[in-house]
Nucleic acid binder design. Structure first.
Lengths: 75, 75
DNA sequence: CAACCACTATCGCAGATGTTATACTCTCCC
DNA sequence: GGGAGAGTATAACATCTGCGATAGTGGTTG
């Protein structure tokens, strides 16, 4: 039950605030549940492959630098 | 350890065959692992929210009727 | 035949997610 | 002050997923 070491959660939160979204709204946007976004931000879990894709896409859509360290997908 | 009741797996398989994809290729396309596609087709699990979105998007991209019973997303 | 090869089926386990519920912090407004 | 509401933090439990491994199937080719 230890938190994630890296600062991904911080970056998610920054991204979310840049977009002026609540955790619930961001969850809806990404297609995940509110609890999932909350867990990311507070470092309890790291996003799944698919979730990372959605986040990357969201960043690209708003011309914001990617916050994951992924290879880039077309979509 | 019982299988899923509905025929979602059958529809996934049909979709995949329409697109002439292997399980591995479809997994790559959707951003999930091969094992996940395989489990869908064989009824062991049902796709997550996010996975359903990807499937819906794939259908739309190829002008094929959606195989999930979801509300429609813009992306 | 036997040896490969691509594809598929299944398993186990750790970790991520969905759902539901509770509690806490603010801000606003009476 | 005190209530109401939005937003957030956390929890438990069942389910889904990723990864790695193993085994089966069908085709091709030597």
């Amino acid at each position: 039950m230890t938190k994630t070491k890296d600062d991904f959660g911080v970056r998610v939160k920054e991204l979310r605030e840049q977009l002026h979204l609540t955790q619930e709204a961001m969850a809806e946007t990404l297609g995940v549940s509110f609890a999932t976004v909350n867990r990311w931000e507070n470092g309890w879990t790291a996003p799944s492959k698919l979730a990372q894709r959605q986040i990357d896409f969201l960043c690209k859509e708003h011309h914001i630098a990617a916050i994951t360290d992924n290879k880039v997908y077309a979509r």
